[in-house]
Write a protein that binds this DNA or RNA. Structure first.
Lengths: 338, 338
DNA sequence: TTGGTTAGCTAAAACATTTTAGCTACATTT
DNA sequence: AAATGTAGCTAAAATGTTTTAGCTAACCAA
């Protein structure tokens, strides 16, 4: 960066006009508002000079002056988790298409990290934030809202609060999965879930229970909750479940199912002989295998595009306050190797 | 963002001093340089006021004044590819630890997209760029170097040019994989690679050939190249290979192996009965399976940390020109389900 | 009492841009 | 001939920092 950047002033000098005129030309491109009109020929000379000198507007200066950075911040649980990586990619594409740039951060489900990231990103003057909230992050989220920073929650909502959000229809998705296990002949189904109290997890659990109850199956003590960073609890939970004569397992997330499947393979269990399995999110694992499994495919692209569109809409509206928008996406049940 | 941010000036007003003094205090924190010393008590009052008013420095203004944004740009092939997603996560963590923020972009292996992203990111005034170069991106890369923008190449190098880079020891890794197939009894091994001419791909191919040749095996017509976005060529290539009585396959990347394995499963082939398989990068697939496979585990964390450390070193040095640093990382061979 | 040092502070420039307010010179209308 | 309109342009303020140069008042030595 040692080579000095060419500024609007250099162009003005080259052409022999004021910097204001250069600024006007750079903005209004072809079409001049009838308020500030500039001579066709002058405009051409300015554009030529800009091109010749290799002018690129300084975004810091522009941001300082205009208060907009054309940057949006995206905070997820873990960018290396396939689900979020996929969404990140879609967000990136959509944002770039609208001349926005994206900065990412991962919370590891820690409210503390989320709060720091929010501060860092706000401090970076992002124009808006797309956030996957985690447990106990209610206050951090409220802080963002209170300062009227455009915000969209992703994948999860905050109970009892009204924000913009894009989430999956977790309740119905869980019912679909459960029904699929039932239709495969399972009569004793249990769920392996997280102990985190997140809206998506809760709704998945509720949908599961509802489906069981509709089918007249037992709903008592059928949910097992693993601590999010104590996944080694999985082995003993599986043993418990097996001992109880369970014939179907529903995993609440991709990480849980992959961990669970690894454990089951290690134990030498067979699918579906020992268990029928259903889970959320797809994985290469399911296609490169011969065991039967049903899973919910989340509409990743829609997650990304809807979130970006919603945040941009909020950014455009600026302070003009309007009601929040809640978008719930439908999912698709896939049955693999039936 | 409608709520006006509190600035250094507000603090100055509150305390009743000049803005310069506030700036000094905010910088030199506890310790005052002996050039610009400030009264202990005044300093305390300023810090208190800053805290009370909720002051956060404006990064646009700071960037404009200082020419540094504390932002690094990272351009990879595809952030949703597990390998890059993992690296992205490590880069993020390392950068945040040094008070840097990261913006990401994906090229889809298109030189055109890379060039646009470079322009956008430079225009955003990033302090440095970490780039996974793609085919025909030599000129774009050179452009970055020529403007003395700190830059580190990741995963791949540019032939015949000297840049900072962090790459895997692809040559030896490919030899390890090939040797592993040989030691499992393979005598006719073929490789499925990309038609893209990238340094990592080339070195993997070369290591493969070298290992075959060392073992006295045939090296003629043993490499098959798939076009990077015509992965449906995989099915017929596999048929070809099978017809020729091949007993070992080496996949050059994770995408290739996953695609290949899906095809093989679909065809009803068995591993290792029909083929022995080796590949680069690990995947959940390998653990949740019972077929034998050997793969190269890349040191993802090192990729991220070394790249960030190197770019930061270059940023600190500013224009002080120094030789380029090339870091080659060692890999680890994993044999799964032997 | 003068001269010099220094602790503690400030004014103002600089960074690159956007935008407001208004100027000049010419053309048109009355 | 005066008034009005307008095409085409400019000066300057404003955005929030950092940093240079230098000021004032107090203190100390001679």
């Amino acid at each position: 960066m040692s080579i000095r950047k060419v500024s609007i002033k250099d162009i003005a000098n080259e052409v022999g006009c004021s910097i204001a005129l250069v600024s006007f030309v750079m903005h209004n491109k072809e079409t001049n508002s009838n308020k500030y009109r500039v001579n066709k020929d002058t405009a051409r000379r300015i554009l030529e000079a800009a091109d010749r000198l290799g002018y690129m507007p300084d975004s810091s200066a522009r941001a300082l002056r205009c208060g907009r950075t054309n940057t949006i911040g995206v905070i997820v649980s873990d960018i290396s988790n396939k689900f979020f990586a996929d969404i990140a990619r879609c967000i990136e594409d959509r944002a770039h298409a609208h001349n926005y740039v994206v900065i990412f951060g991962s919370t590891d489900e820690k409210a503390g990290k989320l709060d720091v990231l929010i501060d860092v990103f706000i401090n970076k003057d992002v124009d808006g934030l797309i956030i996957v909230p985690c447990e106990n992050s209610d206050l951090s989220i409220k802080k963002v809202e209170d300062m009227k920073m455009p915000m969209v929650l992703l994948d999860r909502e905050i109970e009892g609060a009204d924000y913009n959000s894009v989430i999956l229809d977790n309740y119905n998705s869980a019912m679909l999965l459960t029904d699929s296990l039932i239709s495969r002949g399972c009569s004793r189904i249990e769920m392996i879930s997280y102990s985190m109290r997140l809206s998506n997890i809760k709704n998945r659990e509720n949908g599961f229970i509802e489906a069981l109850s509709n089918a007249g199956l037992q709903t008592d003590k059928v949910i097992h909750r693993v601590h999010h960073d104590k996944l080694d609890q999985m082995a003993s939970i599986l043993d418990d479940i097996k001992a109880r004569g369970t014939d179907g397992i529903l995993f609440a997330t991709n990480t849980l199912s992959l961990t669970g499947l690894k454990n089951m393979i290690q134990k030498g269990w067979r699918i579906p002989d020992d268990f029928h399995v259903a889970t959320f999110d797809d994985s290469d694992v399911f296609e490169i295998n011969n065991f039967e499994i049903s899973y919910i495919r989340q509409p990743v692209i829609q997650f990304g595009t809807e979130a970006v569109d919603l945040i941009l809409k909020n950014i455009k509206m600026k302070n003009a306050y309007s009601a929040h928008t809640r978008i719930t996406l439908a999912s698709k049940l896939i049955v693999c190797n039936k």
